[in-house]
Design a protein around this nucleic acid. Structure first.
Lengths: 177, 177
DNA sequence: GTATATTTATTAGGATGCTAATTAATAGCG
DNA sequence: CGCTATTAATTAGCATCCTAATAAATATAC
């Protein structure tokens, strides 16, 4: 039940801005994934795996030696079971380690290995160029504006998502809106 | 190798606009999917399945009785094998039919069933409200602007994606940019 | 006219994401 | 203290997406 309705985002003149924007957004995201994929493949990992490495790298910069699966779940905005899978594969690749935590035997801390740190170092170099490559369709000003709109939209979506998570509210059905 | 590196899109002040925008975008994608999923589930289908139904509905409006798998692949911007899967499940749900084409025995035409048309009718009613719900984080003007930026970025990404598809170019490696 | 190339669709195998249900450990309440 | 509720992580089962490899039919080339 993973919804990824990507469609070419042509406007039918009769449609509202929100509608077109919505479809354009899904379309954009599909394209971004498609363009990024070969890039990550060159380093032998996937985009999701890079996400984990990146978050762990950031955590280190914050002074944290590692993160629990739950922390990763929160920072990556994916559910715990999904984290388990990605971390499993990263562990198989020798990129991370799962260590039991003394003070809470339920939790496991995920830590980067030296191998992962070397990879991150290597990837960080070309990363800016790759992003520029992707975002190059927009001018600097447009990128800034785009960013502002995205962050605002994200704030809104975050509220919606949290409502859904807490079971309350969710989505107003056709009849009650 | 499906890349979906969603991360919370916080800006580290030291980062460039493109970088933040890029992460915000991935983050948005994740949130949109998460919010849309329960909505589609209420109708017993997934977002991807809705994508197919919607495209077929549009095709009908264009006077086409149905579309080949390849046409769906192009319009949905997903690879043919993925289309096969989604259509399989829609067929199992009794929403579409695969018909052999007389003039080209390789191709199969996918057509909506009356059941699908009834569902589409029903979904179309609440759909605008759902989109408004999602896009409501932005004002009308912002939505319009957002749309403009997205379409522009899409044009750019389309070029990149086509380059990758044709094997030419691809991604400039770290050293050659 | 036959051999090769391209197109259409599918299968096989891997990675992600989700929900629901489980297991184990910690917290909290009476 | 002991029973219950919550939290952390995992497992099981679906649905999507992808790439690579096949099978079948059509197009093209010589």
């Amino acid at each position: 039940m993973n919804g990824k309705a990507i469609e070419t985002a042509g406007a039918l003149s009769s449609e509202r801005a929100g509608d077109v924007a919505f479809r354009a957004m899904l379309c954009t995201l599909g394209l971004v994934e498609r363009v990024m994929q070969p890039y990550f493949a060159k380093f032998g990992i996937t985009g999701s795996q890079w996400g984990v490495l990146r978050v762990l790298h950031r955590a280190e910069a914050e002074g944290l030696p590692g993160l629990r699966l739950t922390d990763l779940s929160e920072r990556l905005i994916i559910r715990p079971p999904s984290v388990t899978g990605v971390v499993d594969r990263l562990q198989r690749l020798g990129m991370v380690v799962r260590e039991g935590m003394p003070d809470d035997l339920r939790a496991r801390q995920v830590t980067l290995t030296p191998k992962a740190r070397r990879l991150i170092e290597r990837m960080m170099n070309g990363h800016g160029g790759q992003i520029d490559n992707i975002m190059g369709g927009l001018s600097r000003d447009e990128q800034t504006h785009f960013q502002r709109l995205l962050l605002k939209l994200n704030g809104h979506l975050d509220v919606l998502a949290k409502k859904i998570d807490s079971g309350i509210g969710g989505i107003p059905s056709t009849s009650e809106r």
